[in-house]
């Protein structure tokens, strides 16, 4: 069970949070201008890397705020978290 440092509430156990997938995922639009491939890319295609990944989580049983987490999918290490739109360290190799 992960221990996730919420930028607003501090470190809490994983069951308080909900996972929201990789970021950034840009929502294309307007709909008429989006080709099928681009829409499929947006809906389904993710990097799913082995190693460091940038993803968003929400503190569902706490402050209900979404924020960004840098997590390693192999070791589950969490390097940093930050509110949406605030700078985070670049994820290296």
């Amino acid at each position: 069970m992960l221990r996730i440092p919420c930028p607003w509430c501090g470190p809490r156990d994983e069951p308080e949070f909900r996972w929201g997938g990789e970021v950034p995922v840009l929502r294309p639009g307007p709909p008429e201008a989006v080709c099928a491939a681009a829409w499929a890319e947006y809906l389904f295609m993710r990097e799913n890397p082995k190693g460091w990944v940038r993803e968003r989580w929400v503190h569902a049983c706490g402050c209900r705020q979404w924020f960004v987490v840098i997590r390693n999918t192999v070791t589950h290490e969490i390097r940093a978290t930050a509110p949406l739109g605030e700078p985070l360290p670049e994820i290296g190799p």
Binding site: R18, G20, R27, R56, V58, A60, R64, Q65, W66, L84, G85
Partner: peptide
């Protein structure tokens, strides 16, 4: 409700 929150915070802040 949490869907509303997610769209507001993540897509249209």
């Amino acid at each position: 409700f949490s869907g509303f929150e997610e769209w507001l915070q993540c897509e249209w802040p």
